[in-house]
Design a protein around this nucleic acid. Sequence first.
DNA 1: CTACAAATGTTATATTATAACACCTGTTAT
DNA 2: ATAACAGGTGTTATAATATAACATTTGTAG
Lengths: 130, 130
Amino acid sequence: MSQIQILSKNQKIVLKIIEQAKEPLKAYSILFNAQKKGIKAPPQIYRALDKLIQKGKIHKIESRNAFVACKNSKCEISKATAFSICEKCEKVTEINIPKITKVLFAFKDKSGMSCKKYNLELFGLCKKCA
Amino acid sequence: MSQIQILSKNQKIVLKIIEQAKEPLKAYSILFNAQKKGIKAPPQIYRALDKLIQKGKIHKIESRNAFVACKNSKCEISKATAFSICEKCEKVTEINIPKITKVLFAFKDKSGMSCKKYNLELFGLCKKCA
DNA sequence: CTACAAATGTTATATTATAACACCTGTTAT
DNA sequence: ATAACAGGTGTTATAATATAACATTTGTAG
Ligand SMILES: [Zn+2]
Ligand SMILES: [Zn+2]
Ligand SMILES: [Zn+2]
Ligand SMILES: [Zn+2]
């Protein structure tokens, strides 16, 4: 009931693994890492991932089926996520473009739908790879 | 060599199925539909999908693992794609927000990466579901 | 004709994700 | 205290999505 986001045991294990990684992690790679902590099966990972996303602790990079820790207090519990992704080395950076957020939350499509949440993925080459 | 995008037999079959659908189609649902045309196995579908994406004829809705025909001549061969997605009925609409395109192609992240391509997915409730 | 690029057909397999069910743990309400 | 409930866990099995690998064919350019 409280708004303080307390994490369960498995949620803590999964979050720690994701936070310590230098790149986005796939679910089965998290599972592999979590096995030394006693986690044995995919549902344990996917359930923790779902909750961590809901709680704004991590994000899913949809185009990569991979997960990163939130680096950005401005995500407003994952309602506005954006990432730049290097297509060569796959480096992912969480970004924040206030103008984009402003424009999108004001936008309505032809059928009158407005945006409550968005995910934006930018592709290019990072400095090292360019 | 020519810039005219000629489609192969399987590419035409897959594109037609996607164009005739009223909603985004999943790969295995396309496969099911394509079986009456003689297509038998997933790789035939995935190869056609890849080429159709390259040629700008279709887009992948990453958050749904589903494919839609391009409704928008301004995608510039899929370098700038955006969709609104109703979280209740899953209706997907391809949208174009010129201001977003302008801002994003001018953007550089902290490490100097600039955007050559982007995909944006907006979530909310459509008029009917709101 | 030859050589090459693109596409196809096929089998098998890898990868990503969920269903279903039994059990446990802590809180709230009576 | 105890029943009812919500959230979490453990487990097995399976569904859904996607690719590897290889043999063959087709179209086209030199
Ligand atoms: Zn974030
Ligand atoms: Zn890079
Ligand atoms: Zn388009
Ligand atoms: Zn709707």
